[in-house]
Simulated assay, not measured.
Amino acid sequence: MSADGMKVPTVALVGTAGYGRRHLEQLLAWQADGVLRLAALVDVNFDAETRRLVDIAAAVEPQYLSSIDGLEVDLVVIATPPHTHFALAERVLRSGSALYLEKPPVPLLSQLDALRAITPRRRAEVGFQQARATIERLEALLPEVGDVERITAHGCLSRPDSYYTRSPWAGAWYVNGTAVFDGALFNPLAHIVHTALTLARRIDARWAAESVEADLYSVHDITGDDTGVLRIRSSYGPVVVAVGTTAADVVRPPAITVHGTRGHVTVPHVASTSIHPLLAALNDIDGPADRLIDLDAVRTFVDVVNQAVEVGEPVRIPVSEQQRIRAGVRCLPGIAELVDQVVSTGSLFAELGSGWARRPAPGMDREAM
C-alpha cells in the first residue's frame, strides 16, 4: 500500500544486466517513493552488483526467478537481448500483465505483427522514452521551417571494444541463424530513428517507408554494423535520413534536425522534464497506451530495419582507416564531420566521396514489388 492507502502496482523486471541495470535502479528509486512494489527479478544469472543494489534499496526483497512462468504481476518490464523479446513479450501479453518492452522491440516485422495480433488486456508500450517529448518540441518549431522537406536523425557515440565483446549477440545481425539486428541505427540510436519516422507520419498521414537505401559499415570487429546512413523515401511527405556511429572521433549527442523551405531546426533527443513513459504506465496501468510508442506505432521502425538488412551486409572498414584513441577504444577519423555533411545534404556516405565508402545497392522499392 502507498502512504495514502492506495494499492501500488506490482512490477517484474526481466533482464537485470546492461540496460536492465538502469531499469533496476529506476524501479528501486520509484519503489522507495511508494510508486510500485518490485515483486520479482527474472534473469538467467544475477551478478553481485544486482544483489547489492537490491539489498541497499529494497525494504522487501523481490523474488529472484529464472523464468517468467507463473509470474503474476501488474506490469512486466523486458530488458533482455533483442532476439529474446518476442517470446517473452508474447507470454506477457497473453498473461494479462501490462508490458513495457525495451527498445528495439523485436528484430522481425513478422514477430511484431504477431504481437500486434494479440489484444492486450492492459497497456503495452515500447521503451522509446523521449519520443513524445522530442516530437512535441519539434512540432512547436515547425512553423519556422516552412514546408518540411527532410527529417534527419543523427548521433555520434563512442563505444569501447568491450561493448561488443560482452555478449555473442552484441554487434551481430544474426546469432546461430536467429535475427538480432544489433546495428548502430537499429539499437543504440534506435530511439532517434523511431522519432524521425513518427514525425514524418504526423506531418503527412499518408507517409510510408516505400524505399530504404542503406549505407552500412563496421569499424569494430563485429559481423553487424556500427556506422551508417539510412535514407527512407515516401511518395508523400518528407525524406527521412538517419545517420550515426558508435566509433566517433568526436562524440555528439543524438538529435533530430528538420529541414524545410524556410530553414532548419535541431532538437536534442535527451531526457526532458516530461514524465517518464514507464512511470506514466505505472500511474495508469489499465489506461490507454501512448499512441507514439505502442505496438502499432513502432511498426514503421521495424519495417525500415528489415528493409535495410535486405539491402546487403555491412562493409568492414579497413584497420588502416581506423585510429586507436586509447586501449580498447577505436574511432573512425573524420566520421563526425561526415555525419555533419549528411545532416546538411541528406547524402549517403558513399555520395560524399569518403575513401572507405562504397555505393550501396538501391533500396527495395515497395511500389515495384
Rank of each mutant, 00 (worst) to 15 (best):
H154R: 12
S167N: 14
W169G: 00
A131P: 00
V180Y: 01
A172T: 11
G171Y: 02
G177D: 11
S158F: 04
R123K: 10
F128N: 05
W173F: 15
G183L: 05
D147P: 00
Q111V: 04
T134W: 05
Q111C: 01
L157A: 11
S162Q: 12
R121T: 11
L115S: 09
A170T: 12
A170E: 11
D161M: 11
T165F: 09
A117P: 02
V148S: 07
I135Q: 08
A170V: 12
Q111I: 02
T178E: 13
Y174L: 14
R159H: 14
E125Q: 06
R123D: 04
T165W: 00
G177T: 03
Q130F: 15
S167T: 12
F181R: 12
D147N: 14
A172Y: 00
A179L: 06
G177H: 08
R159W: 13
G183W: 12
N176T: 13
F181Q: 03
F181D: 10
A114C: 05
S167W: 02
A153L: 05
R137Y: 00
Q111K: 04
D182A: 00
W173R: 09
A133R: 07
E125P: 02
L112M: 07
F128L: 08
T119D: 14
D182R: 09
S158G: 04
R123V: 04
L142Y: 02
N176H: 14
A133D: 09
R121L: 10
G171S: 06
E144L: 14
W173D: 13
G146H: 11
G171R: 06
V180N: 09
R116S: 10
T152D: 01
T152R: 07
